[in-house]
Design a protein around this nucleic acid. Structure first.
Lengths: 149, 149
DNA sequence: AAGGTTGGTCAACCCAGTTGACTACTTTGG
DNA sequence: CCAAAGTAGTCAACTGGGTTGACCAACCTT
């Protein structure tokens, strides 16, 4: 059996490749994983570029580039921060929310197919197990989610 | 609960970071994951640079760079291919095998700690589940193991 | 009001990958 | 048998997504 990290990497890639293919079939712009993570992050909270960088585990400069792209493409917009005149909140546009919704459906499809392939109970154990391990390692302050290859 | 790809990515990173830290504590050269995957690949078979590239899921040029580094650092050497005068077999040196052995021990430690944290049975299910999914997606011809972020 | 901290931007750089072109050798099939 | 197609490896130029460092303006102390 392959070692755990290889299993994780290969599964990640397998899922990502399928996701990417289906997005392309639909004809959507080929956003990268980091963009999706930003969407999901912004869905639940208001955030500055610095927050986004911390969430992704990259520098604020790198985060700024990503935000600039998303802005240019119309997925997010910047609005002034209510109390701090240096800062800007980054917010999803309708286009951004639509994209996220579609992507979430795609992910749900893929996860459903995974459940079908290996059994819903097994998939559930996988998710529980990984979640528990992350809690074990990091406690409550989860780090950025960008893997480092 | 986080979506599956995020769980995979975060777990991969968590394991990788710990591995990297421990290697550094021991004082070993900071090889990158790709190097490790090459070691593991070469442990079991003779391979050319092209083979290695295919295994990693990168171009032969990228693979050549990795092999050149490993050669320079003394972990592998190149020997002439017995029948094809264009090709070279890449082989682990003793230094390479020692490194691999040490790294394998480290990985085993980490996997052991993971088993302790989430339960051996759960870990086993995780591994079985991911393996089964990969078989489901790819059949028998597994692709390169490099994730694409 | 002074000094340290923080959000954001600009610019230069890094590095691991890519594409493309090429040589030398091997394989194929008419 | 030989010409054409294919393959191993190398060189060079480029790309993209990150980094570090310097900076300004606003903010937060004290």
């Amino acid at each position: 059996m392959d070692p755990v990290p290889a299993l994780l990497a290969m599964t990640y890639r397998a899922l990502g490749d399928q996701f990417h293919d289906r997005l392309r079939q639909i004809g959507l712009e080929p956003l990268r994983p980091a963009h999706g993570y930003v969407f999901r992050f912004l869905k639940e909270r208001r955030a500055t570029t610095v927050d986004i960088g911390a969430h992704l585990g990259v520098t604020k400069q790198a985060a700024a580039k990503i935000v600039a792209e998303l802005d240019e493409w119309g997925y997010v917009l910047r609005e002034p921060h209510p109390t701090d005149r240096r800062a800007q909140y980054v917010a999803l546009t309708t286009k951004g929310r639509d994209y996220l919704k579609l992507a979430d459906n795609l992910w749900a499809d893929l996860e459903g197919e995974m459940a079908e392939a290996i059994g819903a109970a097994t998939l559930d154990t996988v998710k529980q197990g990984l979640t528990a391990y992350l809690r074990h390692v990091h406690g409550d302050d989860q780090p950025g989610l960008r893997p480092v290859w």
